[in-house]
Simulated scan of single mutants.
Amino acid sequence: MSAQDDLEAAAREELEQACAPGWRALCGHTPWGDTFEGFTPAGREVCFERSYLWEVEAGGDIRVEVNVYEPRADDEGVRLHRTIPRPTPA
């Protein structure tokens, strides 16, 4: 696996975990972000940045951003995002 593929795999996995709680659980914590160290699937040490932002306006859709990079190369890495739509009232 190439270094880029390894970073992409780590970013995809982190994005899935970041979105897993869903809109209702995340809305009370948005906007919020954190950076922490961890390991890629291939065992490389990397930094993970996770951010929860309002897509357009507070209380609307939540934009989840993930950036995974090597600690000494923060301008290089993989940045992914996904939008968690606000649920429509039943």
Rank of each mutant, 00 (worst) to 15 (best):
I84R: 03
E16D: 01
V68F: 10
H29R: 14
E55T: 03
P41K: 00
E70H: 12
E37Y: 09
E13V: 10
G22C: 01
R82W: 11
G28V: 03
A73E: 15
H29Q: 15
Q17R: 12
V78I: 04
W32S: 14
L80G: 01
R12S: 07
E13K: 09
A11Q: 01
R24H: 10
H81P: 11
R63L: 15
R79K: 06
P21V: 06
H81E: 15
R12Y: 04
G33F: 06
T35D: 13
R50F: 04
R63A: 14
G33D: 13
A90Q: 07
D6V: 02
P31F: 14
N67F: 15
L80F: 05
A90Y: 09
A90E: 15
D5N: 06
T30W: 02
Q4N: 13
F36K: 11
V46Q: 09
R12H: 06
L7F: 07
Q17L: 09
Q4G: 14
Y69N: 02
D75G: 14
R82K: 14
G22P: 01
V64D: 04
E76M: 13
L80W: 02
P31L: 11
D61P: 05
W32I: 13
R44G: 03
I84P: 04
E70N: 06
R12K: 10
V56Y: 04
D75N: 10
V66E: 07
F39W: 08
C19A: 09
A42D: 09
E8T: 08
A58Y: 02
L26E: 05
G77K: 05
Y52S: 14
